[in-house]
Design a protein around this nucleic acid. Structure first.
Length: 528
DNA sequence: CTAGGGTTAG
């Protein structure tokens, strides 16, 4: 397999004097060829040879650690870096930061980064990407500002990383600033930057601006088209997503696996059952793309949401692909919508078997029991959860006001305007109740009495963020919020009423999709 | 002799 490298290695072994260059060519050669074993082996020989590893060789081995997620080896090499006195070297540190971030230990990455008095544009870029990767895009955006303050001029790759941070956090105002920056500094919209921008605007809540950017791009490839199709999907505009497909084909671009995931997702979230079936049936026959578990999951979701749960079961039984938690999750979701309690139990059991530590599965089943009034079963699930010390993932909601991102958790009192927020909420609830809003305590998973439940529900992070948005943004302006979990059923109803009573458009990005609330209705048509 | 960039389910 690595015949040519074997020859190189034989030749290399014959060198009477090996220097840093010949070592690094050999180590790097194995790394590039994906031969990790030999890469590490040669690197160890290198260390033993007494020649000091340098700024050229080390990044190769560190990148192998990143690609194999070998944190242990990564830390070992970090200690070698220290011994070689290369902790201020941009190439080496950038590689280490990248390795730590892919291994999800952002603290180690940041510590290294902070230890450098001067950092080049690549090292900054890697650090910015690391923050986004590890779930702190706010920090990524702060770093972008710091970088410029220190006089480091961002290039296109740096900007793509910032665009990604905006996309991930959904910060529309920041997104526009970054866009202005790109235009002002005359970065050309190549296909990668262009695609990242399409994705950013869509994920910041504006699928129309995403489309404008898309239309303005000179070059588009299958990734660009897939990003646009996916965007229509998660904004609930399935028809537009489906319409893009023939347009894409006409430009001579062929679909890949992800294009079909995006298309099927769009169909399932807009109730386009026939269109979805047709695409699913044609993907292998006409385009040579073999359906994998994700495509099957979309189909289970598509059929299940539409109430065709038995068809969806049939599909699961007949499929020749290994079943995973996502698949059972889709079935469970359908059971939740259509009140199929017994089948839900079966799906939940499969899910819990696969992932006994995932609290979300228990919560979903518990909510299904709650909706069906099966309190005893619900109590059993809760008991199971507390027995295993399973905690729900904490929910957060973000809102961007005055170019600052404000974050709320349930019952949060840490915001400087906390008092005003709760007063607004109280006032708002009175108004909503007059319009017919009834709080739905079924969605509260706590063993507390009704009054406490109400208090809890009242202070969900979504509601706090919306109340804050109402008091801190101009009347009539759109309110955009982002949540890390799925929006709860009561908050969904709440948003509809708020949009009605306050004449505001509210755009909510939750963990799964966008909800556009306007005049008392949601773009998801309650089909989520 | 080196480095950092875009799409996807539940």
């Amino acid at each position: 397999m690595h015949k040519s490298l074997d020859d190189s290695y034989a030749l290399f072994c014959g060198f009477s004097e090996k220097n840093a260059v010949s070592w690094s060519v050999m180590v790097g050669g194995y790394a590039k060829a994906g031969d990790f074993m030999n890469c590490f082996r040669t690197f160890k020989e290198y260390l033993r040879s007494g020649v000091r590893p340098d700024t050229y060789t080390l990044p190769f081995v560190i990148r192998v650690c990143r690609d194999t997620m070998d944190l242990q080896m990564g830390r070992l090499i970090h200690s070698v870096v220290y011994k070689c006195g290369l902790l201020l070297d941009d190439f080496v540190v950038a590689a280490l930061v990248d390795m730590y971030s892919k291994c999800k230990v952002i603290g180690d990455a940041k510590q290294l980064f902070d230890g450098m008095p001067k950092r080049d544009v690549v090292t900054w870029t890697v650090m910015i990407g690391a923050c986004t990767e590890c779930g702190d895009p706010t920090e990524a955006l702060v770093l972008f500002d710091q970088m410029r303050e220190e006089g480091v001029v961002p290039d296109k790759v740096a900007v793509v990383n910032v665009v990604n941070a905006c996309a991930k956090i959904g910060a529309m105002h920041k997104a526009k600033l970054v866009h202005e920056y790109i235009v002002k500094n005359k970065f050309s919209f190549d296909v990668i930057l262009g695609t990242a921008m399409v994705d950013m605007y869509a994920k910041c809540g504006s699928v129309d601006v995403a489309r404008e950017v898309f239309d303005g791009l000179r070059e588009k490839n299958v990734i660009t088209w897939s990003a646009m199709i996916a965007a229509y999907g998660y904004h609930g505009q399935g028809n537009k997503a489906v319409d893009m497909f023939p347009m894409m084909l006409r430009t001579g671009i062929l679909p890949n696996k992800i294009t079909f995931v995006s298309l099927l997702y769009a169909c399932s979230h807009s109730g386009l059952v026939e269109e979805g079936k047709q695409l699913f049936n044609s993907m292998q026959k006409e385009y040579g793309v073999k359906p994998d578990i994700k495509h099957f999951t979309c189909m289970v979701d598509l059929l299940g949401r539409a109430g065709k749960i038995d068809d969806s079961l049939k599909l699961i039984e007949d499929m020749a692909v290994e079943k995973d938690e996502g698949l059972w999750g889709a079935l469970l979701g359908a059971c939740r919508i259509h009140g199929r309690v017994e089948l839900a139990e079966m799906a939940a059991k499969s899910l819990i078997e696969l992932q006994p530590e995932n609290a979300g599965h228990y919560v979903l089943l518990s909510n299904i029991y709650a909706k069906a009034g099966k309190w005893k079963d619900m109590a059993k699930i809760r008991e199971l959860m507390s027995h295993q010390k399973l905690k729900k993932v904490p929910g957060w909601t973000w809102i961007e006001v005055d170019n600052k991102i404000h974050r709320f958790s349930v019952g949060d009192h840490t915001h400087p305007l906390s008092k005003e927020i709760y007063e607004k909420l109280k006032y708002l609830l009175k108004e909503l109740e007059i319009s017919g809003y009834v709080p739905d305590t079924n969605f509260v998973l706590h063993d507390v009495d009704e009054e406490l439940k109400l208090g809890n529900l009242f202070s969900h992070s979504e509601k706090l963020a919306i109340a804050f948005g109402l008091i801190s943004t101009p009347e009539q302006s759109t309110i955009r919020i982002m949540k890390n979990l799925r929006v709860c059923g009561d908050c969904h109803t709440f948003c509809k009423f708020v949009s009605q009573v306050t004449s505001r458009v509210i755009i909510v990005r939750d963990a799964n999709r966008f909800h556009h609330f306007k005049e008392g209705a949601c773009s998801c048509k309650d089909y989520w």
